Amino acid sequence: MEIKIERTKNPKAKPDQKNLGFGHIFTDHMFVMNYTEGKGWHDARVVPFENLSLSPAAMVFHYGQEMFEGLKAYKGEDGRARLFRPEMNAKRTNASNERLCIPKIPEEDFVEAVRTVVSVDKDWIPTEKGTSLYIRPFIIATDAFLGVAPSKTYMFIIILSPSGAYYESGLAPVGIWIEDEYVRAVRGGMGFAKTGGNYAASLIAQVKAHDDGYSQVLWLDGVERKYIEEVGAMNIFFKIDGKIVTPMLNGSILPGITRNSVITLCKEWGYEVEERKVSVDELLEAQKSGKLEECFGTGTAAVISPVGKLRYKDDVMVISGGEIGPVSARIYDEITGIQGGTKEDKLGWITFVD
């Protein structure tokens, strides 16, 4: 894929790495590629970061035909920029595209696009501990047409954001609200796809949780309302009686890349890992019997987010004494070590950016 590069004539000042926050600051450049029916994906380019000009009738605004991804770039002690399993994001992009009737992007082109724009802005990759360059690829439908049908034109864009910890509390255990009123997704829907509608559906419960002092929402299945699915921005894991347990992928749960990495590592370390249905009643019983030993969320943004308490209706389950558990800490250290180059990449998960 030929990618044209237009460098900015007005580079921005680099931010204070100690006060990055998450998702507020953007680099000098972005990647853009267009799709036209009959022509395919074309005009791949890196250009200065700028606002978009779209028709008010663009279909993305009216029918929500869009998808997005999330991954990160890191700079190791050797000074080399690296990506963590970008080919997995490419595969998941096309799984989302298929569900949303968006044309697929060749996986090698997706990875090349990410590597190219990160290479152009690699000086923006922060080096403070716990920081990274967040990468947001997304695709939007751009036809100016008020009709419910797949668009015939699209834009594939990648923007970059130097970021600190996703949660201000860092690795401090968070409180999670198990939602018992609203549902986010059902099997046969779009729960497995990385699309904005899934997140819009989660906002009302997120507000409820925040109002009650909880950081995130843990969703139950949309049919029986009793099986654990995922957190608003993460997959969820439990250590129950020595076993690592996580809800199985069933079409309404996002197939997280960090989730896959955690399962792989835990099996490598000799833990018994179960991907299965997990009911909220099982969690309550495990907590009462002392068998619920740890709980943690996994995702690109936070990597590992220890959970110190779970609330379901009138029950509050305090987990691991409200502290980070040993498995959670080990996984965090291993994944961030591989990402930052301080631990050996035995599984070939790193892609270097020149």
Rank of each mutant, 00 (worst) to 15 (best):
G191K: 00
G191T: 02
F192A: 15
F192Q: 10
A193T: 05
K194I: 08
T195E: 01
G196H: 09
G196F: 13
N198A: 08
Y199L: 06
Y199R: 04
A200N: 06
A200Y: 00
A200W: 00
A201I: 03
A201R: 12
S202H: 03
S202R: 03
S202T: 04
L203I: 14
L203D: 00
L203E: 01
I204Y: 05
V207I: 14
V207Q: 11
V207H: 07
K208Q: 11
A209D: 02
H210Q: 11
D211L: 12
D211M: 09
D212T: 00
D212P: 00
D212L: 10
G213L: 07
Y214H: 10
S215R: 08
Q216W: 05
L218F: 03
W219V: 00
L220R: 06
L220Y: 02
G222A: 14
G222W: 12
V223A: 12
E224F: 08
R225A: 07
K226A: 11
K226D: 09
K226E: 14
Y227P: 04
I228V: 15
E229M: 02
E230S: 09
V231N: 09
G232L: 04
G232H: 04
M234N: 10
N235E: 00
I236H: 07
I236K: 00
I236M: 10
F237C: 12
F237D: 07
F237I: 07
F238D: 04
I240K: 05
I240Q: 04
G242D: 11
G242V: 12
K243R: 14
K243S: 14
V245N: 12
T246M: 08
M248Y: 08
L249Y: 05
L249T: 07
G251T: 10
S252N: 13
S252L: 06
S252R: 05
I253G: 08
L254V: 08
L254W: 02
